[in-house]
Design a protein around this nucleic acid. Structure first.
Length: 602
RNA sequence: UGCCCGAUAGUGUAACGGUAGCACAACAGACUCUGAAUCUGUUUGUCAUGGUUCAAAUCCAUGUCGGGCAGCCA
């Protein structure tokens, strides 16, 4: 048995997509000598499965082309970002790439900021990555866009000197007004032709904290009549007297995404800056800023792909945040959440997530991925690695009347038919057992081949039993079943070859252990909860059901790093709420259930 | 009614001017001491109309439909 995070499967054939084609061509054409991508989340929430797609793309490219992928906090908005998110992001990325691309992870020595250097007579700033294999004396940390505030400020000053940026005194409302609309050109700001000297002075005073929030901005000087909104003198810097999670009270002006991102990419030596489709219209601005500064090193280029949309869930951080703050789920890592931490807690392995990412591909088409693809990837992975166990979720007692009272047998059970090296274990059997309520029907529906009055069924690894009597209480509820066993039919016994259509799971009443089992289902009842109206009205009221299950005694040794399949039911993993003597298990995903489908037909 | 991007079975994705393939889903069957897994088979597709070409999913034109863009968010 390998740990869940190890990539036990042969690595899938290197996928091909339009971005990898570009990277390959750029390498072939010697446009770059080393490929450097980056994963740049904003620490304003937890990472979700959509980020997982991006991580797999960026780190996947790094590992396939012998490059590096930098982890960078895109933290230019102090009012929305928190260290809790910085920490969770690091944990989630680490978990997802471990054993797969962790040697491609680009970090930097703790506290290090870009070095000023002169290249070809030009001023330059550079902060190359180190990977965790490199010899080092200081600990490593992710990159932070906020570590470049000094350099970004310098670049802004250069832009002003070039006459390509100016300080604008328009209010936020007027700025919006002057911008026009997609089908109506904007108007020049009255401050557009302010002198370089005045802008320089004002910018320095903005930095010095002389002006209140939102009273002035630094703007690029492009074209207020551009059909592309983002070229209508976009704001580059704003005033925000706010504490920043990483730079503290050092700054009161903060660069905006468009200005900070391209420069951060450049400073780190990124070659391929891969982002989602909505940034496509920003690309001309990305290029304009970098080209305006006549920088001495090779410039990064931006490429866009379609973000992941997955059925029966929501993906926006805003909505996920809402679920958390309104306590509709227990937290960001609630096993029903599409967050990486939630998915992990649910019991899904990193390998399964990576295979999912591999299967969905990378394109510019904005579609909706069927959850069945995710579910298939999870089952495929868990089928190979999960230890088989017998466990009864909703017990009904069975007494084997012809089984000697007080006798206990230890039966051999196979741990994983997909992996003989997983070995076997002992399973205690005795006179009184529990079976699943679903496995007995007093009035069986058509094609039902489990236990019924007078009918026979095999107990997995044990005997063939026959239901002789249904015992009910005064209310007519079934309390137990009295059965007789064919005592020669035990696995390996004289009549063990007898054909009985059904085989069911069971546990010995005297030996089983109780466990809290959390049965998770889809969080939403419709494929597109956020298509129209309030997504919360589609919350699945049955997304969590908690039962006290009866498990075979070997589950006392359950380990958090292992995965379990309760035969005929589902895959499970230990929850972090478990403690010695208290088993708490999460249902990761059910087994496919052909009977449920059949039963639904009638 | 501005600009940008996209469109291939139900869903997602490949084919890079030369036989439309794959995965998931669905359906049918085989096997089964897990109604799982595995195996076999089946159904279903190039948005439309023109053009270029011996040959078009692919190139061109026009249209249709879908997505994105008007934060001092990212």
């Amino acid at each position: 048995m390998t740990t869940p995070n190890a990539d036990t499967h042969a690595a899938p054939p290197a996928p091909s997509d339009f971005i990898r084609d570009i990277v390959a061509a750029d390498l072939q054409g010697e446009k770059y000598v080393k490929i450097i991508t980056r994963f740049p989340p904003e620490p304003n929430g937890y990472l979700h499965i959509g980020h997982a797609k991006s991580i797999c793309l960026n780190f996947g490219i790094a590992r396939e082309f012998n490059g590096i992928c930098n982890l960078r906090m895109d933290d230019t908005n102090p009012t929305k970002e928190e260290v809790e998110y910085v920490d969770s992001i690091q944990e989630d990325v680490k978990w997802l790439i471990e054993g797969w691309a962790d040697d491609r992870l680009g970090l930097k020595p703790k506290g290090k900021t870009p070095e000023a250097q002169t290249v070809n007579g030009k001023q330059d700033f550079h902060l190359p990555a180190v990977t965790h294999h490199a010899p080092r004396t200081t600990p490593l940390e992710p990159f932070y866009a906020s570590d470049y505030f000094d350099q970004i400020y310098e670049f802004a000053v250069q832009l002003i000197k070039l006459g390509r940026a100016y300080i604008c005194d328009l209010s936020p409302k007027d700025t919006e007004e002057f911008r026009g609309s997609p089908d109506r050109p904007g108007k020049d700001s009255p401050f557009r032709n302010r002198s370089v000297e005045e802008s320089l002075d004002l910018f320095a005073r903005m930095k010095a904290g002389e002006f209140p929030d939102a009273t002035r901005t630094l703007r690029a000087k492009l074209d207020m009549a551009s059909p592309n909104i983002w070229l209508r003198d976009p704001v580059l810097y704003r005033i925000r007297h706010a504490e920043h999670h990483h730079t503290g009270g050092q700054w009161c002006i903060y660069p905006l995404y468009d200005f900070a991102h391209c420069l951060s990419d450049y400073i780190e030596g990124i070659t391929h800056s891969i982002c989602t489709l909505e940034f496509e219209v920003h690309r001309p601005l990305y290029d304009w800023i970098l080209e305006s500064l006549s920088l001495p090193r090779a410039l990064p280029h931006q490429f866009e792909f379609a973000r992941l949309n997955l059925g029966y869930t929501v993906m926006s951080k805003r909505k996920l945040m809402q679920l958390v703050t309104e306590k509709l789920v227990t937290g960001w890592d609630d096993p029903r959440m599409p967050t990486i931490s939630g998915i992990r807690r649910r019991g899904v392995t990193a390998g399964a997530l990576r295979h999912f990412a591999y299967h969905i591909g990378v394109t510019k088409y904005n579609g909706l991925t069927d959850v069945a693809v995710l579910e298939h990837a999870i089952r495929e992975d868990l089928n190979k690695r999960a230890l088989r166990r017998l466990g009864v979720l909703r017990p009904i007692k069975v007494v084997i009347t012809n089984y000697p009272e007080g006798q206990v047998e230890e039966l051999d059970a196979i741990n994983n038919p997909e992996d003989p090296s997983a070995g076997t274990r002992k399973l205690p059997c005795s006179r009184e057992l529990y079976i699943e309520q679903d496995d007995f029907k007093e009035v069986p529906p058509p094609k039902y081949f489990r236990l019924r009055p007078g009918g026979e069924v095999r107990l997995k690894y044990a005997y063939i039993i026959k239901c002789e009597q249904v015992v009910k209480d005064s209310a007519g509820q079934i309390t137990e079943l009295h059965c007789t066993a064919d005592l020669d039919s035990k696995t390996g016994g004289a009549t063990s070859g007898r054909k009985v259509k059904g085989t069911i799971h069971w546990v010995s009443a005297a030996h089983c252990v109780d466990a809290e089992v959390r049965l998770y289902d889809r969080l939403f009842t419709v494929p597109e909860p956020d298509a129209a109206g309030d997504f919360k009205q589609f919350l699945n009221p049955h997304s969590l059901e908690v039962v006290t299950a009866k498990l075979e005694p070997s589950m006392n040794d359950a380990k958090p790093e292992l995965r379990y399949q309760f035969e005929r039911l589902a895959y499970f993993a230990l929850d972090k709420d478990s403690a010695p003597g208290r088993l708490v298990l999460n249902r990761t995903i059910t087994l496919k259930d052909a009977w449920a489908k059949e039963a639904q037909k009638s």
